[in-house]
Design a protein around this nucleic acid. Structure first.
Length: 831
RNA sequence: GCCUCGGUGGCGGAAUUGGUAUACGCGUCAGACUUAAAAUCUGAUGGUCUUACGAUCUUGUGGGUUCGAGUCCCACCCGAGGCACCA
């Protein structure tokens, strides 16, 4: 029966070329009309690394491509652009090593990616392609900086910043992971520098509330919330004994304040408040030594103290405002600057850290919350738990007996605020975004300094403020742009003698956090984005992005969106309406793919051997798009077989059609129409794996039927079958659709331009139902019920009772029956 | 410690959201074709007992709700990812 081999190489080359010549799905932005409703599908901005496409890229790109093709066939206008996050460190580091200019490296990497992506048939709109390193793009990145500057959202700040000694640049808080540089894993140090910041904190509350508007994975929302780190607590004034010096503490758990047996202050805060003047002479030396040592510790060293807390008793006492108790003041570096007020109350009975500290320094422990459960009370005494359970206040003066988390907490706050020594204070973890980078391969910050060193914005007519090329790449701790003669000359020519440029470039996250606004106006030189385009295309309807970008990129993108909205440029609050994360494709051994482990699957090799269609369908068939899944070398061949069988089956659809009345024909057509409905539903809910399984089921049914009789389906149904394949295996589908022609004619109508088939409910309807019979919850028999009887409860139950096995099980019982139409007959023998 | 997912055959995974557990694919076994192998095709394939009809057990563990639980509730165990001296 298989007369024609599956020539995947020939098929894929032919149709890639034909589509390209025809410009299929290209330049869609030109067709935007007012009032249009577009489906905007977006893939995470990719960094064009020298490695080329890996199987993970293929997975998420294919998933989006399936959505694009399916929705186009369903009559939607689809915007599906692509671009490159082309500035960044790898190309620059490579330049340092080899001397090849980053522009060169980047261009050839992009060429490789583009060729590979076309080869796997992703139907991107290449007319909207953008690259952040192109002056036509970064002109608008700089424009955005100036907009922020004009509105006071970009400012120069002085202070301690994160410094990566290996990358020789400052880093944003978000780029420091466990005290190390997220890129090179070098330990980050602190450095005092004057740098540019964006005022993202201005939108902190909206960055929280906006999450309610979007359809994102719960975990992603949680992580964003955690990063913003809103904490609602109380500032409570303790005073240094015998002075008027106020030491405000901040706490979320003020209900335990009667249990405070010590106060701890951060070393830096101690100096800031100049408390050293009060130190008793005997104590002064040890305290100052401790503070000195703490200042030399790195973040990592401070964290080692997590188990063994360090600290020093100052010999000073503070007064607890709620009861006038004198309690000792300690300096300890586990209290961090920047969290709350950097002064904490130590309540060892109800906090694990405080407990450890109290044990170490032999401080008293006063329990102020009693728990109904004695076991919890014991745990509290052993320091094993903190705020895990609700209890009743004790040892707390007039608040004794009140609920710790209920009336007690509320009454206590009310009282303390009434006494004027406490006030509500909300704190946030989010800090302003540090965007200066002392690196070359990025967008220059459009700022110039006058001879007095005062910053001025680069005039808009001078944009793009181009990146000079006469630059020494070697990182010296100075920005590489310092070495450019052209840059300096340009500034003096345009702004006057003695002026100098800002030598730093912008964090690449600035480039990549507004790109989705640019696609619709990719070649527009007059504005960052055309308002009509924005209105029709945005916000992004579906965003597919790796889970690694959750905090940085999304937070920044949301900030830009809200800022531009407030300037009147955008009409929406959130840029990404719906978002999902693709899972990771693991090596065949179930481990993350890496060259050193030798478990990397190269997509080019799979394409050579099995074809791009097989690669696409296999990756979609592996499992749910959002979960991590290992590569299975032999399962790929199974998918290849499926495509091969599909080709053979469709190509055999010539000749005399079997009568439509033939039972095998009826069964196959029923399955086909069921499959049409199933595939459309599954694509809609991103269940590509089960959609493909359904297509496999269909061909199984078809081939089985063909063993009885040669089946030639009606033409419309052969077409429908081919169309179902089209989003998944676009090359093969086109080949089957065009198989009547010898070659692609100029102006041929692609299958990808046809209308998605409709399932005929009548043909899809089952004629018989298998109804299981349960007796006390166990399936004992199955009945075959004709469709016209399936709603007839009396009939079905009678059939069930008549069944031999059921009769046996029901003998001597008085069973009651219930029937869920078409689903199940359930007998219960219990009374 | 906290947050978020997960745990189903030898493996990847299905299960219309409370109604036939193990769809589909891989693998394995048997068979056809072949001198042979590969490729391709056909059949079987959760465990235990049984010649068979069939019975019985089975969705991480233990309880519960229900005629009926992979699915809902409670407690716990294990794994992955993220966060964390956050007061």
């Amino acid at each position: 029966m298989q007369t024609k081999v599956y020539d995947h190489i020939g098929i894929e080359e032919r149709w890639q070329k034909a589509w390209e010549e025809q410009g299929l799905f290209q330049n869609m932005a030109a067709t935007v009309k007012p009032g249009d409703d577009w489906l905007y599908l977006l893939f995470a901005f990719a960094y064009p690394s020298g490695q080329g496409l890996h199987v993970g890229h293929v997975e998420s790109k294919t998933a989006l491509d399936i959505l694009a093709r399916f929705n186009r066939m369903s009559g939607k206008k689809v915007f599906f652009p692509v671009g490159w996050d082309a500035f960044g460190l790898p190309a620059e580091n490579y330049a340092v090593k080899t001397g090849v200019h980053p522009a060169e490296t980047t261009r050839s990497a992009i060429d490789t990616f583009r060729r590979q992506i076309k080869r796997i048939g992703i139907s991107y709109d290449w007319e909207a392609e953008i690259a952040t390193s192109h002056p036509g793009y970064y002109k608008w990145t700089q424009w955005l900086f100036l907009e922020l500057y004009k509105k006071g959202f970009a400012y120069q700040g002085d202070g301690m910043v994160n410094w990566c000694p290996s990358c020789q640049t400052v880093l944003a808080n978000e780029q420091v992971v466990n005290g190390a540089c997220e890129r090179c894993d070098t330990e980050v140090t602190q450095k005092n520098m004057k740098q540019w910041f964006f005022k993202i904190t201005e939108y902190k509350d909206e960055l929280i509330s906006g999450l309610d508007q979007v359809d994102w994975p719960e975990a992603t929302k949680q992580q964003q919330l955690h990063w913003i780190g809103k904490g609602e607590g109380l500032n409570i004034d303790f005073t240094l004994k015998n002075t008027k010096v106020v030491l405000p503490i901040w706490t979320k758990f003020w209900e335990t304040i009667f249990g405070t047996t010590f106060i701890v202050i951060a070393p830096e805060k101690f100096l800031e408040l100049e408390l050293e003047q009060f130190l008793p002479s005997g104590q002064a030396k040890s305290v100052m030594t401790y503070i000195e040592e703490a200042s030399h510790k790195t973040e990592e060293e401070r964290k080692i103290g997590e188990k063994d807390k360090t600290g020093v008793n100052t010999g000073l006492f503070v007064v607890n405002p709620v009861n006038g108790d004198s309690i000792p003041l300690f300096v300890a570096d586990y209290v961090l600057m920047g969290v709350g007020t950097a002064i904490v109350m130590g309540v060892p009975a109800h906090d694990q850290r405080d407990f450890a500290f109290a044990k170490k320094f032999s401080l008293p422990i006063i329990q102020v919350v009693a728990y109904a459960d004695k076991k919890i009370d014991q745990k509290v005494a052993a320091g094993e738990m903190s705020f895990e359970a609700e209890g009743v206040l004790v040892n707390s003066g007039q608040f004794d007996g009140m609920s710790a988390w209920g009336s007690g907490k509320a009454k206590m706050a009310e009282w303390m605020i009434g006494q004027h020594f406490a006030r509500f204070q909300t704190t946030y973890k989010l800090r302003d975004w540090l965007i200066s980078r002392q690196r070359y391969w990025g967008a220059p910050i459009p700022i110039v300094y006058d001879p007095e060193g005062k910053p001025h914005p680069v005039k808009e007519e001078h944009l793009p403020w181009t990146l000079p090329t006469d630059v020494d790449f070697k990182p010296t701790g100075e920005s590489p742009l310092t070495s450019s003669k052209e840059f300096q000359a340009r500034v003096e020519k345009l702004y006057g003698k003695g002026w100098r440029p800002e030598y730093d470039t912008m964090d690449t996250f600035v480039d990549s956090s507004w790109y989705y606004l640019r696609y619709g106006s990719a070649r527009d030189e007059s504005q960052f984005a055309d308002p009509e385009q924005l209105k029709a295309l945005l916000p992004v309807d579906f965003y597919m992005i790796g889970p690694e970008h959750i905090v940085l990129h999304l937070l920044y993108s949301r900030f830009f969106t809200k800022f531009l909205r407030d300037q009147g440029y955008l009409k929406f609050d959130e840029p990404f309406t719906k978002m999902r994360h693709q899972g990771m494709i693991l090596g065949p051994n179930g481990k993350k793919m890496s060259k050193s482990k030798g478990n990397v699957i190269n997509p080019d090799e799979i394409i050579e051997k099995f074809g791009a269609d097989t690669l696409r369908v296999y990756e979609m068939f592996m499992g749910p798009i959002e979960s991590d899944k290992p590569w299975d070398v032999s399962a790929v061949a199974g998918v290849y077989r499926f495509l091969q069988r599909t080709q053979a089956a469709v190509l055999s659809q010539v000749g005399e059609a079997e009568s439509l009345k033939h039972p095998e024909m009826i069964a196959v057509r029923r399955k086909l129409h069921q499959t049409i409905a199933k595939v459309a539903g599954d694509i809609g809910s991103l269940k590509f794996n089960t959609a493909i399984a359904a297509l496999m089921e269909f061909i199984n049914v078809y081939e089985r039927a063909c063993r009885e009789v040669k089946l030639v389906l009606p033409e419309a149904e052969v077409l429908a079958w081919t169309q179902l394949i089209a989003p998944f295996a676009p090359f093969l589908a086109e080949e089957l659709f065009q198989s009547g022609h010898a070659d692609a004619e100029p102006g041929f109508a692609s299958i990808h331009l046809t209308n998605w088939p409709q399932s005929d409910a009548t043909l899809a309807a089952e004629q018989e139902f298998v109804v299981p019979v349960q007796i006390d919850g166990k399936v004992r028999a199955r009945l075959l019920i004709k469709a016209d009887k399936v709603t007839d409860e009396t009939y079905v139950v009678a059939q069930a009772r008549a069944d031999a096995i059921v009769t046996r099980w029901l003998q001597g019982t008085s069973a009651t029956a219930r029937y869920i139409a078409g689903k199940i007959v359930s007998f219960s023998t219990q009374a």
